[in-house]
Amino acid sequence: MDTILFLAHTEADGTLGKAALEALGAAVELKQPINGTLVAAIFGAQAKAAADFIASCGAQRFLTVEGDEFSQPRYATDAAACEALIRAAGATIVIAAATSRTSRVLAGVAHRVQGCVDTHVTSIAAVSGTITVTRWFYRQRIEGSLTRSHRPWILLLDPGAHAAWQGAAGSATTETVEVPLPDALRRTTVRSVVTPPADQQTIRPDANLLFVAGAGWTKKQKDGQTHVPEAETIILDFLRNSKASLGGSKSLVDLSGENQAALPFMGHLNQVGQTGASPRHPKGLSTCCHGEEPHTVGWRFIAERRAINLDPNCGWARGKADVLYVADAFEVMTKVNELLAAK
């Protein structure tokens, strides 16, 4: 019988993040069909309070690692904490959300506990009693379902792939797991977190809309000229008015890296797809994006998709977008901005 460990860290404010609650949802759901035992383990600042928040999740045990040294997201201490928690729980299946903090350490932890690990997991299900995991390969271009006989098996669930656990808070009986901290684990110190200034913030993970600016914005238009400053104004106005998050295709981002006439506010962090992010938003509007499907696989997690493109036969919009407007994005987006500003 498998022991499922829900493993999470607290956020800077001591709560459990949405992604962690999604992982908990997946862990709780898996328990019954495999007839497993659920254990919850939390590390980081105020782990006890976080355990209370999920007290009614059905976990048999609540394990915590607490203390100042574990409040900072740092490989050495996080890996030690996770290792200790997995060992203390006797876990055979570990389910965690793929946050930057868990993603940094859990493969290493798998190695320490002689386990195996899968990341970019989108579903965890019991198929005829066997745990079957679906995950991405080749940067969201191939999806595979697999099983492993090896244990412990650590699974990092992509954010947004499962409904978040919902339940009443209570008082959890927690067991504190002690983790020895030799100096060798304290060679790294987290100093700060750098956030881009609000006026330069173009990536908004919680936005309702992802606006994808394709390379067409910087190319020669009908009159034989490029209109980069105009494109810049239109896009920034739109982001301001709509509070959308900005995504770019690879070529546009690369152009900016090469000091070509490109959009100055578009950096590598904006890149979606192949070598960029695969953000999740309810809606996506793609503009001037012709022919960059391998790079805009970031579309995959956008629920409603529309595109503005001059080519009605564009194979990348056809079959991939819900609506394709065959029109000049410069013209349309200028009008969109006028309408949004008037609201």
Binding site: C116, I142, E143, G144, T147, S149, H150, R318, D322, L324
Partner: peptide
């Protein structure tokens, strides 16, 4: 101990 039960390129086709 690793077994793949299915591997495919996602075929999500939308009515555009």
């Amino acid at each position: 101990g690793l077994q793949y039960s299915n591997v495919a390129a996602p075929k999500q086709q939308r009515q555009t």
